[in-house]
């Protein structure tokens, strides 16, 4: 990326943060505050998916598993103990990380389309388990009456906490990107064979990255529990995974802030539109196809094209292609 665009990034990000914080306060409308709170939480969820899509180059159709696990984990923790909501969310999310690492280690025996399918199957399976464990989870009715301590019960404080967490997470992801961790992740994504020659295990690098993605997704799930006041089994559903995949794709596979912005925007759009139309799925499908066709680099790619006409956008397809296990690399005919 050219220097000029890089120099612009920090002030713009700061501006974005101020806008995020200030807007609902300035206008003072509860509806807007409510909408943006949900949006910011989904922005965090979309950012977690950016780690999957942009950092590992894999597609997961079961990222909802970690959103739902964070939601139910937090709910059960808050019910069982007297811990405050915000520490409860973080605690539950951190406690889920070992499980996430184990699941990813297993899933990563597969790559590409196979990986996508196993993630889908595992999330569906987890959703069924939660629906069937009625005594613990409330079954299909969801888990209501979760005691949410005052630190997150008021809409204003929830919004503030979620925004701060999102900004911190974006900053952490952007910072990590430039460190050794990010470089190894990218090396493994782009050429696992060569990275292995330098002593970097593809499976371990991807497992750790996906573990981080699960952590962020679980935090988003816990926040969403406080937002909705209940845990519901649809959190595990494929719709959740498809929506977050679309958010990260619109944001651009290679752009952390793009994913966050797309998450906020798409959530706000969906919830403003469901008031007028019940056929959100139709629009979602059209947007999928249109983004792939007309905006291959997502928001991040668009921004880079605007910022620097010489910058070459990295498309989702290009990343996935370059990381594809079964594609031949090099060879006589290329």
């Amino acid at each position: 990326m050219p220097r000029s665009a890089r120099a612009l990034r920090a002030p713009l990000l700061a501006l974005l943060c101020i806008a995020l914080f200030g807007w609902p306060w300035v206008t003072g409308t509860p509806g807007l505050l409510n909408l943006l709170t949900g949006g910011v939480i989904w922005g965090l969820f979309a950012l977690s998916y950016h780690l999957v899509l942009g950092w590992t180059g894999e597609i997961s159709f079961g990222h909802s598993l970690w959103f739902g696990a964070g939601m139910y984990g937090t709910a059960l923790l808050l019910q069982a103990t007297r811990v405050d909501a915000l520490p409860g969310i973080l605690l539950a999310a951190v406690a889920l990380v070992p499980l996430a690492l184990l699941v990813h280690l297993l899933s990563l025996r597969l790559r590409g389309p196979y990986f996508a399918m196993i993630t889908f199957a595992l999330a569906e399976f987890a959703g069924l388990l939660v629906q069937n464990a009625t005594s613990l989870t409330g079954g299909t009715n969801g888990l209501t009456g979760v005691p949410i301590s005052p630190d997150l019960a008021a809409p204003g404080t929830l919004y503030l906490s979620a925004s701060l967490l999102l900004i911190a997470a974006v900053a952490a992801v952007l910072w990590l990107r430039g460190t050794r961790v990010g470089l190894v992740a990218r090396a493994v994504r782009d050429n696992p064979t060569r990275a292995a020659l330098f002593g970097h295990s593809e499976v371990w690098a991807k497992t750790l990255t996906l573990g981080g993605a699960s952590l962020l997704a679980a935090i988003a799930g816990g926040l969403f529990l406080c937002y909705q006041g209940m845990a519901f089994p649809a959190a595990f559903g494929s719709d959740t995974s498809f929506t977050v995949l679309l958010m990260a794709t619109i944001g651009g596979a290679d752009s952390a802030w793009g994913a966050a912005v797309a998450g906020i925007g798409l959530y706000a759009l969906e919830n403003s539109l469901t008031a007028t139309t019940s056929h959100w799925g139709l629009l979602l499908g059209v947007v999928y196809i249109a983004v792939v066709r007309f905006l291959p680099g997502g928001l991040g790619g668009l921004w880079r094209r605007v910022g620097a006409s010489r910058g070459r956008a990295v498309t989702t397809g290009a990343i996935l292609e370059s990381s594809d296990q079964s594609a031949p690399r090099g060879g006589l005919l290329r």
Binding site: G112, P113, H279, G281, L282, V286, I289, T315, A318
Partner: peptide
Amino acid sequence: NVGGQILTTLGVMLILDE
């Protein structure tokens, strides 16, 4: 463009279902 194709077929599925 494997990723693009997966996303497109996903979009087609959502549209047909809806």
